[in-house]
Design a protein around this nucleic acid. Structure first.
Length: 369
RNA sequence: GGGAAGAUGGCUGAGCGGUCAAAAGCAACAGACUGUAAAUCUGUCGACAUAUGUCUACGUAGGUUCAAAUCCUGCUCUUCCCA
C-alpha cells in the first residue's frame, strides 16, 4: 500500500486511527478543510494548521482551469505553491459534474466542461486526465473521477451512473502512478439504493484502493436518510482502509457518521458559513449578522479557546460584517475551522476512551435544542 | 428683483390620469449555506388585521374628473441662472 492506515481503537463502529502519507500523518477521524482554489478561503495555512487540521483539500477542476496543473507542477507542486507542507487530498472534479450541470456534457469517455471562468473554452475531464492532473498537483490522496448525481434520482438512472463511475474507477486506478506515501481512493455511489451501494462497494473492493469514499450524499436528503445509507454501506467497505464521507457536513452529520464507521470528512461549511455570518458554537450555530449581537461583548463561543474567541467580541465581528469588512469573514472562518477541529479532537478522545456512544448521545442532546 | 427647474415611502430615485401601497438601488430585519461558479443567495420591508382585507399616503390648501403621485390654481420650501 502506498499510504498506510492503522486503527488503534474502536468504539462500536467508530474507529480511531492514523493515516501516514509522504507529507505527514493524519489523525482520524479527521476533518479536512476545503481549499478548492489552492487556498482555504480567508485563512493563512498557518492558521489552518494551528487549528489542528492535518490535511486539506484541493480541487482538480478549479486548478486545471486556473492557474493550470502544469504551472503548479512547474512551480514545485501544490504544497509549495500554497505553502502547506502537510498532506493534501484532491477532489477529482466529480462534484463539478453535478454542481456545474448546466455547463457540461457527459459521455462514457468523460465530461466536457464549459469553463465557468471565461464561459467559452471547453475542457475535457476523463478519469485518466483527472488522475494525471492530481499527480501534477502532487496530491497525496488522489480521488477517482466519478459522477456525483443529484437527488432524487430513479433507481435506473442511479444504477447506470454508478456503473459508469465504477468503470471510471477502474480507469482511474489504472492511470494512477504508485509512489510511496501517495494513494488513490475509490468512490462509492448508488444514491439511496441499498443494492446499488452494495454492488458499488463490492466492485471497488475488487479493484482495490488505498481508501474508500462515499459520494453522492448530503445533497438535499434528510439526515436520517443519509445515516441509513451509511448503516448499510460502510460495513460493505473494506474494514482496514480509511472510510471517507465526501462533502459532509454539519457537526451533527459528522458525529453521526463517525458512529457508523467514517474516518474522514471534508466540507465547505465552516469556511462558507464563516463568510456569510454563520458561526458554529457548542450546541448549534449563531448568525453574527443578527442585531442582537450589536452590543454583545462575549466571544463567538464562550467555551472556545481559539485565537478569535480569545481576542475578539461578537460585537466587533458583528460590526465587521455590518460594515462589510473582510476581516469579519476571515475571523469567523478561522473560528469555525477551529470549532470543527475541536469537535474532531473530542471525537478521537471519546473513541480512545471507548465511550463514543455516550459522547454521541450527549452531543445530540445538546445540538440545536 | 427677474427667470428656470423641482418637492415621491428611513435615504437615493423611477413613475407623469386608472393595471400604484407606488420600479430599482441602498439601509433595516430575518432566513439559507454540506466532495465551493458563493466576501453569496432568498424573504420581509406605510399602519393595522397579516390568506383574499381595511385605513392613511407621493410638500400644502383647494379644484377638474367616474378615477389624480400623475392635470389646473394659490401657498410654502429647495436648487440653478440673470441682475
Amino acid at each position: 500500500m502506498s499510504i498506510k492506515f492503522s486503527i488503534s481503537h474502536t468504539s462500536g463502529r467508530a474507529r480511531r486511527g492514523v493515516i501516514s502519507t509522504a507529507h505527514g500523518e493524519i489523525q482520524t477521524p479527521a476533518f479536512m478543510p476545503v481549499g478548492t482554489a489552492a487556498t482555504v478561503k480567508g485563512l493563512h495555512t498557518s492558521e489552518v494548521r494551528e487549528a489542528g487540521a492535518d490535511i486539506i483539500l484541493g480541487n482538480t477542476y478549479h486548478l486545471m482551469l486556473r492557474p493550470t496543473a502544469e504551472l503548479i507542477a512547474h512551480l514545485g507542486g501544490l504544497h509549495k505553491f500554497m505553502n502547506w507542507s502537510g498532506p493534501i487530498l484532491t477532489d477529482s472534479g466529480g462534484f463539478q459534474v453535478m454542481s456545474l450541470a448546466g455547463l457540461r456534457k457527459i459521455t462514457e469517455d468523460g465530461v466536457k466542461f464549459t469553463s465557468h471562468i471565461d464561459g467559452g473554452e471547453h475542457h475535457m475531464l476523463t478519469p485518466e486526465r483527472s488522475v494525471e492532473i492530481q499527480h501534477l498537483l502532487d496530491s497525496n490522496i488522489t480521488m477517482c473521477f466519478d459522477e456525483c448525481l443529484g437527488w432524487p434520482v430513479s433507481e435506473a438512472d442511479a444504477a447506470k451512473s454508478m456503473r459508469m463511475s465504477m468503470r471510471w474507477a477502474q480507469r482511474s486506478k489504472d492511470a494512477f502512478v504508485n509512489r510511496d506515501g501517495y494513494g488513490i481512493f475509490g468512490i462509492n455511489q448508488g444514491s439511496m439504493y441499498k443494492d446499488l451501494r452494495l454492488e458499488s462497494a463490492a466492485t471497488l473492493a475488487e479493484i482495490g484502493f488505498d481508501g474508500y469514499a462515499i459520494g453522492g450524499l448530503a445533497i438535499g436528503e434528510a439526515q436520517d436518510v443519509m445515516f441509513e445509507v451509511l448503516d448499510y454501506t460502510v460495513p460493505a467497505l473494506p474494514f482496514e482502509a480509511p472510510h471517507y464521507l465526501m462533502g459532509v457536513g454539519t457537526p451533527a452529520d459528522i458525529v453521526g457518521a463517525v458512529a457508523r464507521g467514517i474516518d474522514m470528512f471534508d466540507c465547505v461549511m465552516p469556511t462558507r458559513s464563516g463568510r456569510t455570518g454563520q458561526g458554529f458554537v457548542r450546541g448549534g450555530t449563531i448568525n453574527i449578522n443578527n442585531s442582537k449581537f450589536k452590543e454583545d461583548d462575549a466571544p463567538i463561543d464562550p467555551t472556545c479557546g481559539c485565537p478569535v474567541c480569545r481576542q475578539y467580541s461578537r460585537a466587533y465581528i458583528h460590526h465587521l460584517f455590518n460594515a462589510k469588512e473582510m476581516l469579519g469573514a476571515m475571523l469567523l472562518s478561522q473560528h469555525n475551522i477551529w470549532h470543527y477541529q475541536d469537535l474532531m479532537r473530542e471525537i478521537r478522545a471519546a473513541i480512545e476512551a471507548g465511550e463514543y456512544d455516550s459522547f454521541a448521545e450527549k452531543f445530540f442532546k445538546e445540538w440545536e435544542g
